[in-house]
Simulated assay, not measured.
Amino acid sequence: MPTLQRNHWLAAAQPRSFTGLMGLYESNYRRFERLVPELDLPFETAESHGADDTLYLRVVERCRYTTTVHLTYWFGEGEARHPDPDLLLRVYQDAQLAEAISCDARSRYVALAGVPQIDEDVLATQWPRNLLLNKWLAYCLAQGHGFGGANRPRQRPQKA
């Protein structure tokens, strides 16, 4: 590959570039797909028990091509109980992308909070939030978390 062409592709995939961000969204999707193999999410809420913790997933919104989910750990007990990290992510089934759209301000990741308008100035805020999602999904997978098959929540029988 000629040097000029190789440098073009390297520059396009640099962190905090639009192309790099789209690559990060694709990686987020692939990791989320491993965590939740049934991307149609045939449940509203689910828990996954890993090595040392419980991961909670709640479907927030279902649309034709996207699903928005809340993904978090809960720490503490009683009134001290808090989510951390507390991420809202949107899964684009048609484009096969997953984007962290917010990180709750109560989280210790307060610098990543909020849902910004999408424009060129946003790359600086979208990048760290989605890098956090990417690394956290990898951590959850390494801890043995998953929401597919045997881990799928079962409906409780309705009382008559």
Rank of each mutant, 00 (worst) to 15 (best):
L4P: 02
L4F: 09
Q5W: 04
R6W: 04
H8F: 13
H8S: 10
W9T: 11
W9I: 10
L10T: 05
L10Y: 06
A11K: 09
A12T: 09
A12I: 08
Q14C: 08
Q14Y: 04
P15V: 03
R16H: 11
R16W: 03
S17F: 03
S17C: 09
T19Y: 03
G20C: 00
L21Q: 03
G23N: 11
Y25E: 13
E26Q: 13
S27Q: 14
Y29V: 10
F32A: 12
E33Y: 07
D40F: 02
D40H: 07
P42H: 09
P42A: 06
F43A: 08
E44L: 05
T45F: 05
T45V: 08
E47G: 01
E47I: 00
H49P: 00
A51R: 07
D52Q: 02
D53R: 04
T54S: 05
L57G: 08
R58W: 05
R58P: 01
V59W: 06
V60I: 12
V60S: 10
V60F: 09
R62T: 11
C63M: 12
C63Q: 15
C63T: 14
C63I: 04
R64P: 01
R64Y: 06
T66W: 11
T66H: 14
T67L: 14
V69E: 14
H70A: 14
T72K: 14
T72A: 15
Y73D: 12
Y73K: 13
Y73M: 12
W74M: 15
G76H: 15
G78F: 14
E79F: 13
E79S: 14
A80C: 15
A80G: 15
R81N: 13
R81Y: 11
R81G: 13
R81D: 14
H82M: 13
P83H: 12
D84S: 13
P85E: 15
P85R: 15
P85K: 14
L87D: 12
L88T: 13
L88H: 12
R90V: 12
R90M: 14
V91Q: 09
V91H: 09
Q93L: 10
D94M: 02
A95C: 02
A98Y: 02
E99N: 05
A100P: 05
C103N: 09
V115I: 04
V115G: 02
P116R: 06
Q117G: 07
D119T: 01
E120Q: 09
A124E: 15
Q126L: 14
W127C: 08
R129A: 15
L131R: 13
L131A: 12
L132T: 05
L132P: 02
L132C: 03
L132G: 05
N134W: 03
N134T: 04
K135P: 00
K135S: 11
Y139V: 03
C140S: 09
C140W: 10
G144K: 05
H145G: 08
H145Y: 06
H145T: 05
G148R: 01
G149Y: 03
G149H: 04
G149R: 06
G149F: 06
A150K: 07
R152G: 02
R152H: 06
P153A: 02
R156N: 08
R156W: 05
K159G: 00
A160K: 04
